[in-house]
């Protein structure tokens, strides 16, 4: 554990708490892509299935339980409790175009042709693109509530910090994980536009609005 990874994981935790706060406080999930949240639940389930047979640490286990639990809870909130505020009309990204390539890629590009390694690779590839429905929705709406942009910033920062963590681990331990690295690089890259607007608008006290 190094400072980059710890901060990254804490940012990830923070992003989920911000999202829960947004939903509970506004009693609405407007502006949040249900498809992205569903994909995250799938990412966590397929990746953390090793919870039952691969022990790393108490920290690791508790975080895995939290990420699986909270992602399912968010899916429940959006699909059941606050269903009326969910806006499927704007949530039009075709996730089959994401799921199918990720499944195919996981079958060809994995560390071993075992169920666990294929599921793990799938979860890593899927996580890289899971934010796309959300960014697509943001693009269609043209604006976002400030709290939603804080959620996205925390989520993007978590990914960015993982890159620093990998640079540090490569230097300190000779740690190498090409699948996670390439997917992580792609994932962080998807946030570049968002980061730019967040920096130039939200952090200067303005509303998050995309140029027409």
């Amino acid at each position: 554990m190094n400072i980059f990874r710890l901060t990254a994981d804490l940012m990830h935790l923070a992003s989920i708490f911000i999202l829960l706060l947004k939903i509970q406080k506004t009693r609405s999930c407007a502006g949040i892509s249900f498809k992205s949240q569903l994909l995250y639940a799938l990412v966590f389930i397929t990746r953390y299935i090793d919870l039952f047979f691969y022990w790393v640490s108490l920290y690791n286990t508790l975080m895995k339980i939290f990420f699986i639990g909270s992602s399912l809870y968010i899916v429940y909130l959006m699909q059941v409790k606050f269903r009326a505020t969910n806006d499927p009309v704007l949530d039009t990204f075709r996730i089959e175009y994401l799921l199918a390539p990720c499944a195919l890629l996981a079958l060809v590009a994995n560390y071993a042709f075992t169920a666990q390694e294929i599921l793990w690779a799938f979860s890593v590839y899927l996580e890289a693109g899971a934010i796309l429905p959300q960014l697509f929705m943001l693009q269609r709406r043209g604006e976002a509530e400030t709290i939603t942009t804080h959620y996205l910033f925390a989520l993007g920062a978590y990914r960015g910090l993982y890159l620093l963590n990998w640079i540090y681990r490569y230097w300190a331990e000779g740690y190498v994980d090409w699948i996670a690295w390439i997917a992580g690089l792609v994932q962080t890259g998807l946030y570049t536009d968002f980061f730019y607007i967040y920096y130039t608008k939200v952090l200067k006290g303005q509303k998050f609005e995309l140029p027409a």
Binding site: Y54, V56, S57, K64, E117, N165, D177
Partner: peptide, 10 residues
């Protein structure tokens, strides 16, 4: 079950 790489990250 053995994994190929050490999966100690989240």
């Amino acid at each position: 079950l053995e994994t190929v790489t050490i999966k100690d990250e989240l």
